[in-house]
Amino acid sequence: MVQESLREAMHEDTEDEIERDQYLVFSGQYQEFGIQAMRIQEIVPLSGMTKVPSAPPHIEGILNLRGRLVSVIDFRKRFGFPPKDHDEDTRIIMVEHHGFPTGVIVDSVAEVIRIPDEKVQQLPEYSTVAVMEGYITGVGMLDKRLVILLDIDRILSAN
């Protein structure tokens, strides 16, 4: 019986092949970052949030997204980049995280592009890359751009 459920479980991993290589590109601190587009639920302008007492500083607050409660984090604060005032370009990216939408405030959203697997490079283990180590799944190499691809789950999970 255990055997059967195991086999079933092993045949499970085939979903989610859709547009795996599409990425939402946004900018922050003069670099471009990418998150798998299939993980993005929507992009919304900045709006009022409920502050959470004694939450870590990078948690901006909790937002009402059409009846769902959504935590919103600030990408710059999360990575210790210098703060930047919010302006008309500021957006909240709604990312699917463990089945819930979670908001990420970014400087601006550029576009959704396809970065095929062959243009994605894993970073080898190398000491000086350790700054954002673990949060980067790879580097997308486009014609004239380098897009740092993020492991959004790790970014949102770790505190």
Binding site: S54, N64, L69, S71, H97, P101, L156
Partner: peptide, 27 residues
């Protein structure tokens, strides 16, 4: 009472939230 997402669940002081008449959130 709406459930909190995994991030907000880490704040142990709150067990959920509710949406007020003006659309804002009360924890």
């Amino acid at each position: 009472i709406k459930p909190l997402d995994p991030i907000a669940q880490q704040f142990r002081s709150f067990s959920g939230g509710t949406i007020l008449g003006d659309g804002s959130v009360a924890l």
